[in-house]
Amino acid sequence: MATDTSVVAPKAISMADYKGRVDPDWCPGCGDFGVLAAVQKALVELQIPKHEVATISGIGCSSNFPGFIETYGMHTLHGRALPVATGMKLANHAMTVLVTGGDGDGFGIGCGHFVHAMRRNVDLTYIVMDNQIYGLTTGQTSPTSRIGMKTKSMPYGNIESPLSPVALALAAGATFVARGFSGDQKHLTELLKRGIEHKGFSFIDVFSPCVTYNHDNTFQWFRPRVKKLEDNPDYDASDWNVAMEKSVIWGEEIPIGKFFERTDLPTLHGAEPVLSAGPLVHQNNRIPADVAKTFIEELM
């Protein structure tokens, strides 16, 4: 179907364009505010019109994100944002598709989709607001909660090892892997811009502290620990082995920044010949009579 865009006068895109219809209802001080602002800033700095952006989420505090930014938003099912976004991207690859959610949504219930979206190199930007806790269900252990952390679901302390989202992304073949911190807006905005510009699956794990239920991994806890990979001029983000080594460093020092990027692999939509004629949604939906005839003749 044809999309007529001729009547839209070119005008610089500003933060006001991306302001959502309602203000976020996150707890005061929540890390997600910083992520929202950084995403809006990145889109403005890249001058992407809001109608060309889809923001797709699962369920949870951070998954309410699409309601707080003015784009084509989708608030889907718990853990299912990535397949929905994959379908959206494949049906209209002209859209910039962002996927937003939390650690429970992405690494717990949605972990299967997370791995497969990465190996497919779908051209999505997946932003996980990782707070190491389930927030909207009022404080249970998440797949990134540290061992020993006491929550309502593990009141005597967590006995299960947390997974490393960055290591998992590297292992699954993500072509852009980064980690940001909600407390460092400027750095996060840059990471988001690079991730959105990256052709392929970009994964950005963002420390986005929960001020209500996680008293271990607070802004104060993260701030002295996070160390930017970019501060080391010798860090080579094209070296997967080095990225893997860095991904498991956790303690007094926690690396943030762009761990890894490769640009030599085709995206899923780029590898699919059916899309060479342009976005699926703009293609003809009728089977030409001569083609239909061959389908029937095969059966005769």
Partner: peptide, 17 residues
């Protein structure tokens, strides 16, 4: 689960899925 939600994503973009 991925099958049906991917179809929903594509359908939302405007195609029959």
């Amino acid at each position: 689960i991925g099958v049906v939600t991917m179809a929903i994503g594509a359908a939302h973009a405007g195609v029959r899925a």
